[in-house]
Simulated scan of single mutants.
Amino acid sequence: MTERTVVVGAALLDAGRLLAARRSAPPALAGRWELPGGKVEEGEAPEAALVRELREELGVDTETVERVPGEWPLRPPYVLQVWTARLCPGSAAPAPLQDHDALRWLAPDEIWDVDWLDQDVPAVREALTRLAAEAP
């Protein structure tokens, strides 16, 4: 069996909007937008990894809601899994602390206004269906 590493991404939803994060590194990805997240560490549950990564990258306290169906290949051995998540009451507002230089909350009609990383596009499409259900 081939080793694979799971990368978790957050479809962070708030008030009917989705958070997009613009990459600042590495150079090949800089300037493109993604769902924030990161690698699952050895022995860590994906949901716990997502909460940890969002705290490290954005300075927010979140909770995962549900897994977005599907799994998307990244550069081997990485695969992307996405969860919807929400800010915990009293959490700070998201800020780009590492790996990103800008954040945007996108309403459903603004989702495609940013240049998403190719591998995030299918996950964003899936998240958009949940966003429509969350809209106020």
Rank of each mutant, 00 (worst) to 15 (best):
A92W: 04
E57R: 10
D118Y: 13
G90S: 02
Y78D: 14
A107C: 07
G9N: 05
T129Y: 12
L58H: 01
P122W: 13
V82H: 08
A132H: 07
E71V: 15
L128H: 05
P73I: 08
L13V: 02
L131G: 06
C88L: 07
R125L: 12
P76E: 08
R86H: 08
M1K: 05
G43Y: 03
T5I: 12
G59Y: 01
L54P: 06
V121F: 09
E134S: 15
G9C: 06
A107I: 02
V51A: 04
A15W: 01
V124A: 09
D118R: 13
W83P: 04
V8Q: 02
P26N: 12
V121P: 07
S91N: 05
P94N: 10
A102S: 13
R75Q: 12
L35C: 14
L106D: 02
A127S: 07
A135V: 09
D113F: 07
Q98C: 13
L54K: 03
P36T: 02
E41P: 10
Q119M: 15
A132F: 03
R55Q: 12
K39Q: 15
T64V: 10
L103K: 01
V121K: 11
A102V: 06
G16P: 00
P76L: 04
L106K: 01
A132T: 04
E71N: 12
A20H: 12
V79L: 14
G59H: 03
E41R: 13
E44S: 05
V65W: 01
L19E: 00
P36D: 01
L87E: 01
C88S: 09
R22K: 11
A92G: 02
V65M: 01
A85Q: 03
R67F: 07
W105G: 00
E47D: 03
V65S: 01
R75S: 10
L58Y: 04
P69G: 06
E44I: 00
C88Y: 06
E34W: 07
L58Q: 03
L106A: 03
K39I: 15
R4F: 14
Q98S: 15
A93Y: 05
G9W: 02
R86Y: 08
G38W: 05
T129A: 11
L106F: 00
V51N: 03
P122T: 05
V82F: 08
S24H: 15
R130I: 03
R32I: 12
A21Q: 07
R104Y: 00
A123R: 01
G43D: 00
E42F: 03
P136C: 11
L12S: 00
W33H: 08
P73G: 07
A49F: 08
T2H: 03
